[in-house]
Design a protein around this nucleic acid. Structure first.
Lengths: 231, 231
DNA sequence: TCCATACTTGGAACGTCATTCCATTTATGT
DNA sequence: ACATAAATGGAATGACGTTCCAAGTATGGA
């Protein structure tokens, strides 16, 4: 019987306090993920860092997916708690969005982990924060879901995208600047008849500011929402 | 020397026309992916279906990631070509967005494949289609990138999310309705002080229409863009 | 027609990883 | 002390992506 099969009956006393614990495992997992990306989190690396065997870890955590979700939740939870409350609902939504953007920028693996943990705690934390602000914004009840879903989808979408890019860089060793420069060259060599737009903006790719573009997208949605409030 | 190391010098004549070819491999890969999701695409299953060995496949395709991107591009390319042109730029953007939504709904693995193929052909196809319409919309040159990026990010974000959900269902065997019902129950049992919003919309989760919510999000962004055009 | 060459195949083998198993150690309550 | 349950850690398993290589097959020149 493994510990995690019996979440309900919380152990009355901890046996070996100093030794392995779910928290210590999660902490080590986050360190590994930050250092070497999603591929860096293996049970071998983890057990080596914790000076134990893979079996011991499985006593505390059901599987890798649960470990990833738990690590992700630790980051999201921190982010939601440190994000300052803005003066207006709009400002708070921007702050939450930017907070997540920066968190994923600092821990790219959070992007993909969030996507795979649909409906679970980490996502709910963001959903809730956004929802409260959307309410405060005066959006009618029957539209709140739609509005929050749009915001959340956008935030997670950009997050995944950035996470995937960072991941790619980490795995292949080249840095972001080089990668963008290479893609930019490929784009500028596309067929002018088939890809006029992509060609025309190819030069903007290496210099554009992801963070500003992200915020602009949030503002588009907020502005779309604003036009809803009068009804 | 493998075939795919020397893309440049296209073979003058095909040797064994009836036998293995990149196209046949991609076609088989799509079938496997559709049937059993991302986890269903293994080189063993693929070589069995093609009545060959893994080595033969590696002659035509560099690695699994390239295979996935190629399969993804086949779907995206079809989608972009079948999407009807609307009467206005807005209508066309909606059509492209919905086309991608439906494509990912039919082939959930495309969602995650797109995310991992950043800057590559499949994404560029969508980027271009959106870009041309955004231009037609009269968005000033220096804002086109931002606008297209917002649209693309939103579309891909929802796509990834839906893909992940479908994936989860496929892997774990339960269908979407059950999953949503279960999450809805969990949500409605959250702490009322910490999660008032999530609790209040929990009942909407199982009945809401993903496709409509998606389209509403596109309209928010389009409406946000509209307010830009006057400047 | 035959041969040298390059292309293509398919299966075996390798290394890595998540996960399971189990013998052993450690703490707790009696 | 001792019995029992909690926890450990290392070995074993099985699946997978990828590489290797011995064998087969078409093509173009002699």
């Amino acid at each position: 019987m493994s510990r995690c099969d019996m979440m309900k009956k919380a152990r009355s006393t901890q046996r070996r306090e100093q030794s392995l614990s779910t928290d210590r495992i999660i902490e080590a997992a986050i360190e590994l993920l930050d250092k070497s990306g999603e591929g860096g989190l293996t049970f071998q690396a983890l057990s080596k860092r914790l000076a134990t065997g893979p079996g011991a870890i499985y006593w505390h955590i059901a599987n890798k997916s649960e470990l990833l979700t738990a690590a992700c939740d630790a980051i999201v939870s921190r982010t939601m708690n440190t994000t300052s409350v803005g003066t207006t609902p709009e400002a708070t939504i921007r702050a939450v969005a930017l907070g997540m953007f920066d968190a994923i920028d600092a821990h790219p693996w959070v992007g993909s982990a969030l996507t795979r943990a649909a409906g679970q705690l980490p996502m709910v934390r963001i959903f809730e924060r956004l929802g409260q602000q959307v309410r405060a914004l005066g959006v009618p009840d029957n539209t709140q879901w739609t509005v929050v879903a749009a915001l959340l989808n956008y935030i997670l979408g950009v997050g995944s995208q950035n996470a995937a890019n960072a991941q790619l860089g980490l795995e292949q060793g080249f840095d972001r600047a080089n990668f963008l420069a290479e893609v930019s060259i490929v784009w500028s060599q596309l067929d002018p008849n088939e890809y006029p737009f992509t060609r025309s903006v190819a030069t903007q790719l290496p210099t554009h500011d992801d963070r500003m573009d992200f915020l602009a997208g949030v503002d588009f949605i907020l502005s779309g929402i604003a036009s809803l409030r009068q009804y």
